[in-house]
Computed example of a mutant assay.
Amino acid sequence: MSIENHPFPGKVTTKNPIFDFLECAAVHAPERSFPMKIRNKLERVENGESTAQLQLAKALDEMRYFFRTSQSVGKINGGVKINAIPELASTMVNLRLAVDSSVAEVQNHYESLIRPIARKHGMSFQGFYTKTPEDRRKISLSAFDALEPAPVSPVEAEAFQVLAGTIRNTLKPLIKDQSLIVTPYLMPANTDTKFFWKLTSNIYRFTPVNLEHNLNRAHTTDEFIEAEEFVREPLFFATLILNADDAIPI
């Protein structure tokens, strides 16, 4: 309960690719879809004003998990039978760290929440990196698969320009009589790109699929992809490979 009642704060900073997206939208999006309460905070955020960073996050609350660490209590275990008090109880929290956050920041947050609870009930407390004497009445915290936020990939790189050109070329049929603007964005979920962080900084998470009709079905019942999207995907990646090959000097 204490965890759910104390969510992580959100702020929009220039480190987050979402800020680049917002700046691009401020130039190209119609005013009706990009209100002044957002536009008039961008310059202040760019100048590093902490108040504006918090205000912009509040104005974009529907997008909160693009610039706030998310937490979900996904697993709770305790007890083996109904008429006996559990000797051991555990809970697991799934997190996706914001770009501006860190594993240490998250751990400090949870220690500050749980330590008073242990003290209130006369229990010993063991933090992520502290050891306490053996005590049957204690609360301990531990981390599994702790992963720092992914590095932000550069948009000035030639690799991004090749990607952007391929997107404009292969997805142009989707928006007839309109110009297609490619902007940086953020993939808030963890992906297998963590295995390539030491190999290159040019890591871009993109799939040429329109998820408008199946976004809320991901990982659940009736997850699907439309046939037209299925055909477009291999065409996009084939074009991207050819374009990347042409961009590499021999």
Rank of each mutant, 00 (worst) to 15 (best):
L88S: 12
A89G: 10
A89R: 13
S90H: 03
T91S: 14
T91E: 14
T91G: 09
T91I: 10
V93M: 13
V93G: 07
V93F: 12
V93W: 10
N94Q: 12
L95Q: 08
L95M: 15
R96C: 02
R96L: 04
R96V: 01
R96I: 01
L97G: 00
A98H: 00
A98L: 05
A98C: 10
A98F: 07
D100V: 09
S101Y: 00
A104S: 12
A104R: 11
E105W: 02
V106G: 10
V106W: 12
Q107C: 13
Q107H: 05
Q107Y: 03
N108H: 14
N108C: 04
N108M: 10
N108I: 08
H109I: 10
Y110M: 05
Y110C: 04
Y110E: 00
S112Y: 02
L113W: 11
L113T: 04
I114C: 03
R115P: 01
R115Q: 15
R115G: 00
P116K: 02
P116H: 09
P116Q: 11
P116R: 08
P116A: 03
I117V: 14
I117H: 06
I117F: 00
I117W: 05
A118V: 00
R119N: 13
R119L: 14
K120T: 12
K120D: 08
G122I: 06
G122K: 02
S124K: 14
S124R: 10
F125A: 00
F125G: 01
Q126G: 07
G127Q: 01
F128I: 03
F128K: 07
Y129S: 13
T130D: 13
K131N: 15
K131H: 10
K131E: 15
T132Y: 06
T132L: 12
T132A: 15
E134L: 08
D135R: 02
D135H: 11
R136I: 12
R137N: 14
K138N: 11
I139D: 02
I139M: 11
S140I: 05
S140R: 14
L141H: 03
L141I: 12
L141M: 13
S142E: 13
A143N: 11
A143L: 15
A143K: 14
A143D: 14
D145A: 11
A146S: 13
A146G: 01
L147V: 10
L147K: 06
P149L: 05
P149I: 02
A150I: 04
A150G: 01
P151S: 01
P151I: 07
P151Y: 08
V152E: 07
V152N: 08
V152P: 00
S153F: 05
S153K: 03
S153D: 06
P154C: 03
P154F: 02
V155D: 06
E156G: 09
A157H: 13
